[in-house]
Structures are given as structure tokens and as C-alpha cells.
């Protein structure tokens, strides 16, 4: 299996993971009046008390990290595919891949730090 084929397979797998986890996230955050899940204090899902309640749950933090990684990989690999189809020169192709890889890693580290630091601060 060559590298692009392997990345494409991971792209599809990440899409399936996102469909489940982001579907759940959208249901919790944006269908709260219809479904009312995981917002134990009522009010709006982004109210601090609800954010804290979800952040304390290990399952939520773990699923957030999985969703963060899957969404960044799926989104940035998809964006790379769209841009590469426009036939940039070889140097630009390599630069694009490097920028998206480094940007994705940076965003993952920042997002993961926020989730883990937030959970740790609420449990201490």
C-alpha cells in the first residue's frame, strides 16, 4: 500500500469517526432544546457550569482528543487534496504539505493542552 493510498484510507476512517463524534457534539451543543443531553445544569450548553460538568468527565475529554485529531487530519488532508488538484509546482506542493502538517500538529497540541489543562484545573 503506497503512502497516498494509506493516507486516503485514514482519511475515510477519520471521516467515519467524525460522523459519530461530531454528530454527538452537534447534538449536545446545538440540538439541546430538542434532545437536552449532557447539559446537567440546564440553560445554554456553553454556560460555564455545563462546560465544567462535561470537562470533568474522562469520556468527554478522551472523545474530544480523538475528535480533535480526527477532524484536523481529515480536514487538512482534504484541503491538501483540493489544493494539490490545482497543479501547483513541485516546490509549492512540498511546502503546502509541510505547512499543513506543522499547522495541524500545532493546533492538535494547543487543543489537547486546553482540554487536559482544563480538566486538571477542575478536578484539583
Amino acid at each position: 500500500m503506497n503512502r497516498e493510498r494509506s493516507l486516503w484510507t485514514w482519511h475515510l476512517a477519520a471521516g467515519a469517526v467524525i460522523a459519530v463524534l461530531l454528530g454527538t457534539h452537534m447534538t449536545v451543543m446545538h440540538l439541546d432544546q430538542l434532545v437536552g443531553a449532557f447539559n446537567p445544569h440546564g440553560g445554554h450548553p456553553v454556560d460555564w457550569a455545563n462546560v465544567v460538568a462535561r470537562g470533568k468527565e474522562a469520556g468527554f475529554t478522551a472523545s474530544y482528543l480523538l475528535l480533535l485529531g480526527a477532524a484536523l487530519f481529515h480536514g487538512l488532508y482534504g484541503l491538501r487534496g483540493i489544493l494539490l488538484e490545482l497543479d501547483p509546482p513541485a516546490g509549492a506542493r512540498r511546502a503546502l504539505s509541510a505547512v499543513l502538517l506543522l499547522g495541524g500538529l500545532g493546533l492538535f497540541i494547543y487543543g489537547a493542552w486546553a482540554a487536559i489543562a482544563f480538566r486538571a484545573s477542575q478536578l484539583s
Binding site: N2, W8, G81, L84, E85, D87, P88, P89, A90, R93
Partner: peptide
């Protein structure tokens, strides 16, 4: 874009189709 298209879409810079 499937794997075959991925290689084809690499364009003239990589010896593919424009």
C-alpha cells in the same frame, strides 16, 4: 478524490495529467 485520482491529480509537476 480516491487514491488513483490522487496520483493522477498530482499534475504536470509530478508527471501527471494537467
Amino acid at each position: 478524490m480516491g487514491p488513483d485520482l490522487a496520483s493522477r491529480s498530482s499534475g504536470p509537476a509530478a508527471g501527471g495529467l494537467p
